[in-house]
Simulated scan of single mutants.
Amino acid sequence: MKDFFYAIEDFFVNVALAPLAQLAKLELENWWAANLFSWVFVIITMVAFVYWMLQLKKHSDNNEEDKSISSHSFL
């Protein structure tokens, strides 16, 4: 069973999180290049949020949502 957990550790340290270890090394050399990774995700998140809000507004303007006050039939 101990080997199983060592295999999981080996996978995450040497395979799955290896790109993040490279970013940690890069941060010592160039702060801007290391943070580019974070800024890309921030921009993607902002674009997705704006798209989602525009879709919600479009559906709200079409009156597609049931806005009745009743909640559940058993209440």
Rank of each mutant, 00 (worst) to 15 (best):
Met1Val: 07
Lys2Leu: 10
Lys2Gln: 07
Lys2Asn: 06
Asp3Gln: 08
Asp3Ala: 09
Tyr6Leu: 10
Ala7His: 09
Ala7Asn: 12
Ile8Ser: 00
Ile8Gly: 00
Glu9Trp: 13
Glu9Tyr: 13
Glu9Lys: 14
Glu9Ala: 11
Asp10Cys: 01
Asp10Gly: 01
Asp10Phe: 07
Phe12Ala: 10
Val13Leu: 12
Asn14Ile: 06
Val15Leu: 05
Val15Gln: 09
Ala16Pro: 02
Ala18Trp: 14
Ala18His: 13
Leu20Asn: 08
Ala21Asp: 08
Gln22Ala: 14
Gln22Leu: 14
Leu23Cys: 11
Glu27Pro: 03
Glu29Leu: 11
Asn30Val: 09
Asn30Asp: 11
Trp31Glu: 00
Asn35Gln: 15
Leu36Thr: 10
Trp39Asn: 06
Trp39Cys: 03
Phe41Tyr: 13
Phe41Asn: 10
Phe41Met: 15
Val42Met: 14
Val42Leu: 15
Val42Asn: 13
Ile43Gly: 07
Ile44Thr: 05
Ile44Leu: 12
Ile44Pro: 01
Thr45Ile: 11
Val47Met: 00
Ala48Trp: 12
Ala48Ser: 12
Phe49Glu: 00
Phe49Met: 02
Val50Ile: 09
Tyr51Cys: 02
Trp52Gln: 01
Leu54Pro: 00
Gln55Ala: 03
Leu56Ile: 13
Lys57Asn: 05
Lys57Ser: 05
Lys57Val: 09
Lys57Glu: 07
Lys58Gly: 04
Lys58Trp: 04
His59Ile: 05
Asp61Thr: 03
Asn63Gln: 03
Asn63Ile: 06
Asn63Lys: 11
Glu64Arg: 04
Glu65Thr: 02
Glu65Cys: 01
Glu65Pro: 00
Lys67Asn: 05
Ile69Ala: 11
Ser70Lys: 13
Ser71Asn: 12
His72Arg: 06
Ser73Glu: 02
Leu75Pro: 02
Leu75Phe: 12
